[in-house]
Amino acid sequence: MFFNVNDVQQFQQQKDFIDTALVPLLSLDFKEAKIKQSSSAAEFLMSLTAFIEQQFKGRLMLVPPFSYTEQTRNGVSVELLKKEMEDAGFKHVFFITCDHYWTSFQEQLDVIWLPSIPLESMDTGVKQSILQNQLNQVIPTFTSKWFQV
């Protein structure tokens, strides 16, 4: 499910089944030396999360990414975010990011950290198989959490 009117309506009717939220945490860097790398990471994270959404459409809602820069990162309070989403009916809240900073939260939160892969120079076939590979790596994270309960 995406965060759009149609899907949200379906979520409201099917809260028993759609019980997981996926929140991308997206780091933006506008410094001359980093801006290209930052955009590449953003592209990767957006493609991958869209692919995860396709795979788990009926159980997972992909929320628009929370974007921040190094200066504003402290303004993103992930614990509060998680709390608010749980109050809205999501049983599981996953954060997915390419920013290493969030790995320090792995104790309290479900943070999936992935190194970003530059997809821009690849052609469609290779891109597809790389994303498939990455997807296969994150699937167990979801399923183990789902079957725990």
Binding site: Q10, Q14, F17, I18, Q54, Q55, F56, K57, G58, R59, L60, I139, F142, T143
Partner: peptide
């Protein structure tokens, strides 16, 4: 595309049922 809520099903996705399509969501 799963007829339940639209996830993607996989062939032999569940090791207990190797000759069936399996939807990991539900």
């Amino acid at each position: 595309v799963c007829k339940h809520l639209g996830c993607t099903v996989n062939w032999a996705g569940d090791s207990a049922h190797p000759d069936q399509f399996f939807c990991a969501c539900h």
